[in-house]
């Protein structure tokens, strides 16, 4: 595994893509692995018009502000999210973007790119609603600080009230993990 750096993450997309849950899964698993974490969603008028995002901080020291303005990781689920947040990424930051819905290429040249056909992968597994798990799989692989088995445990926990979705979501997570490359 690579050496841990404080993760300041923005997970963004449109309503229904599960961007908030993706962030929460990262935060919950990281909490259980002993990190300090915070999660905060966009709220108010920002939520209207179908866009949603959340900010997650995972840190070895206590979390200062939960609001992330310059992330080092962006999970862009759709094109407007890429366009909105690409410029805010820190130099050398990780851009995980959903190739299925983003036909353009990122403009920045100082980023580590993780393109992934998340929606298509989820669709092949039976439900595009699992797109977010594919994205989290890619995140876990790219950042390398979380044990994927722990994430799967957390998925089971997260979907405890809807057990019929556990398998799909774990498969989607695994597929995302396989499809992405670890950033060295």
């Amino acid at each position: 595994m690579s050496e841990f750096v404080t993760q300041e993450i923005i997970s963004a997309g449109m309503g229904g893509q599960g961007v908030l849950k993706a962030g929460l899964l990262i935060a919950e698993t990281s909490m259980k692995e002993g990190y300090n974490v915070s999660w905060i969603p966009s709220y108010g008028p920002e939520m209207r018009g179908g866009t949603a995002n959340c900010k997650v901080v995972v840190s070895k020291r206590p979390v200062g502000s939960p609001i992330v303005t310059s992330p080092n990781v962006l999970l862009a689920f759709n094109r407007p999210s890429l366009e909105k947040f690409e410029q805010s990424l820190k130099p050398g930051g990780i851009l995980i973007y959903n190739k299925s819905l983003i036909e353009i290429e990122p403009k920045r040249t100082d980023l580590k790119l993780v393109p992934i056909k998340a929606t298509e992968i989820a669709d092949e597994l039976g439900n595009t609603k699992a797109t977010n798990m594919v994205m989290v799989g890619a995140y876990v692989k790219a950042t390398g600080y979380l044990n994927p088995e722990k994430v799967k445990e957390e998925i089971k926990h997260m979907f405890a009230s809807k057990p019929q979705f556990v398998e799909l979501n774990i498969k989607a997570f695994e597929a995302g993990y396989e499809a992405a490359e670890e950033i060295k």
Binding site: L24, V37, W39, I40, V63, P66, I67
Partner: peptide, 10 residues
């Protein structure tokens, strides 16, 4: 404040 209200933490 709004951040403390909206954020999730352990």
């Amino acid at each position: 404040d709004g951040a403390l209200g909206q954020m999730m933490e352990p």
